[in-house]
Design a protein around this nucleic acid. Structure first.
Lengths: 216, 216
DNA sequence: GTGACTATTTACCGCTTGGTCACAAAGCGC
DNA sequence: GCGCTTTGTGACCAAGCGGTAAATAGTCAC
């Protein structure tokens, strides 16, 4: 008859006690790297081991794996976004090309990081893009402002809204794929990502201009 | 003492017997749709159920899940590629823009299909891009021929190899992202994918031309 | 110091899941 | 009809895995 669970003497030395908030930060930070590498089907035990805690600690701080993943996504798609990045696009002073370059240089530290790209793609594949905040980040803080900027620069020949957004998507796709080659497929990246970024933006601006002129 | 396994009378009606080769085709075809939707961590039992067979049939035809996935990848990245698609790029007659458009219109039936895109991305995330044949498909049959075509069209001002390839990647990224928005993130796709494709290629060609001229 | 609180751990539960096995039935040559 | 081969099936296995419970031990207020 298996009575109450046996009181077991500790075999391993205890880890230091850490305040809940701090521990949660440690977990989220580690989980980002872990899930980015292993995919969302990575095991919680392995994640715990990589932090150096027993895996039940995870469940004291998060109700379940799903909520932990949701927290990771919120961190990536909401908390880590800096609103001043979007402001760069709204600043009317420099040329469109320069604004775009500055925007992607700054925001690229997040958007083009392997962790962000991989988790963004996983979120899409898992079908949870909309609830994760990724869709609204992309649309409200990136595509729409870029489309606004595009429209503003050719005020003399008004550009339809959907065309402007489509061009914004085209540029973003180009930039995204730039990072994805390295982050997703681990292929050889261009020697200088910054130069490639500049080339992509320059090519985009020239192309858009030529296309608009050709239409006239 | 639990002797040899009990002989159990059949409860369900037997499925019809099917020749091994045909069954394997059924499995691979179903597995493509299944893994594309569920990810490589989808369960073999569920796959079997979707085909309407018991899951041990899978293991009669494939040594294990891994080999089944490898077969799926080979099907997508090797067997389904039509060499004539690459030939379109090599045909020197039409303009570069027209060749590119024809190429992506034809090859897009494979490359831009949700199954292909999702499995290509999963393969990348899983770290198996190179062994799966995806890398060589992309480089040998798409990027390199496109770069060749780009170089050939500006023969008067020779373009360095790496710049040509970089431009090819840029175009491909743009086209890829076009499909990815719908296939990976299930976002709203442009009303006409074909029009968007044409616009992407036109924008690319104009941009590349303007960029080359600006350099001079 | 003492008691309350809470972070941490070990052990465990139950379901899932890739994979195997022994056997049954369908086809086929004769 | 009779074996032989091939195809299909359900039961089973063992490890993996998300999640829980009971107990232990730092830490802090007093």
């Amino acid at each position: 008859m298996p009575g109450p669970r046996a009181a077991t003497p500790p075999a391993e030395p205890r880890r230091p006690r850490i305040a809940a908030a701090e521990r949660e930060r440690m977990i989220v930070d580690a989980a980002i790297g872990f899930f980015a590498e292993e995919g969302f089907s990575g095991q919680t035990r392995q994640l715990a081991q990589s932090i150096g805690i027993s895996h039940s600690v995870l469940y004291r701080h998060f109700p379940g794996k799903e909520e932990l993943i949701a927290t990771v996504c919120a961190e990536m798609f909401e908390r880590r976004w800096r609103e001043e990045w979007t402001e760069i696009l709204r600043d009317p002073a420099p040329s469109l090309e320069e604004r775009l370059l500055r925007f992607y240089r700054e925001a690229g530290t997040l958007l083009l990081s392997p962790e962000w790209m991989r988790i963004a793609v996983m979120t899409g594949l898992s079908g949870a893009a909309a609830p994760s905040g990724l869709s609204s980040l992309l649309h409200d803080r990136i595509i729409r402002p870029i489309a606004d900027a595009i429209q503003a620069t050719c005020a003399d020949r008004p550009l339809p809204r959907d065309v402007a957004e489509q061009r914004a998507w085209a540029l973003h796709g180009r930039v995204f794929y730039l990072g994805a080659r390295g982050a997703i497929w681990r292929g050889a990246t261009p020697r200088s990502q910054d130069a490639a970024l500049a080339a992509a933006i320059a090519g985009f601006c020239r192309g858009a201009r030529a296309l608009t002129e050709a239409e006239a």
